[in-house]
Design a protein around this nucleic acid. Sequence first.
DNA 1: CCAAACCATGGACCATGGTCTATTGTTCTA
DNA 2: TAGAACAATAGACCATGGTCCATGGTTTGG
Lengths: 120, 120
Amino acid sequence: MKIGELSERSGLSRDTIRLYEKNGLISSSASQSETNNYRDYSDDVLLQLRFVSSGREAGISISDLRELMKAFFGTCDPSEAENVIVAKMAELKERISQIENVIAFLAAALEKVRDGLHET
Amino acid sequence: MKIGELSERSGLSRDTIRLYEKNGLISSSASQSETNNYRDYSDDVLLQLRFVSSGREAGISISDLRELMKAFFGTCDPSEAENVIVAKMAELKERISQIENVIAFLAAALEKVRDGLHET
DNA sequence: CCAAACCATGGACCATGGTCTATTGTTCTA
DNA sequence: TAGAACAATAGACCATGGTCCATGGTTTGG
């Protein structure tokens, strides 16, 4: 499919898709036609983009995502891939616990605010 | 205390502290001395910075943190503060579930990679 | 008393992750 | 077949969150 359709279906802008491609998160083949240089994207790319975009939403950087994509579809050997994935999972879990700390702090603050309200 | 000590104790660079102050995350009083314009930071600021910096690590933007700080120490009324805090907690929980999605995806990918290894 | 260490300010600089625009070429459709 | 819609490329632009540097003033330890 061409970039317009991919954009439609992925919910990402053409510019963003091109950015991701330039950064090696996805790849495309040259168009079937010889008369243009339109990119042609396979259906797999759509799945890849879904992962990329949920990763981005979760705050994973483009370069980290590139490593993960390489690990998944990877030119690198499987044990190396395993390492990358395991490391990233640990990192994400750490991130979750950081967020949970902040939530706990907010919950405590909320208590105080509510107490303050009751006193009024 | 002066910014150098605050930097030491908070683990943040002077520049970062000044940035945060400029962005309204913390505040300082003018120095006791009249002969200079050094900033003077109370011990409370240290606690505030600890929160700010864990918030930053958790990926919360400076402007969001500013809203939270206002809610905590706030000039704004308590029920408004409550709203801000509750909203931010919900947002953070959403963020956690996004990250968990990614983790689940990675776990699945890991399975596949390991199966691949076994087949070899 | 003097140098080293500290402070404030402002602006330059950087990376990241996008968006927007202009230009040029291609395809689709009325 | 003309014009609208689409595509590629390059470069400018933007916000965010920091760091670094130059300047000039202040404090402090030896």
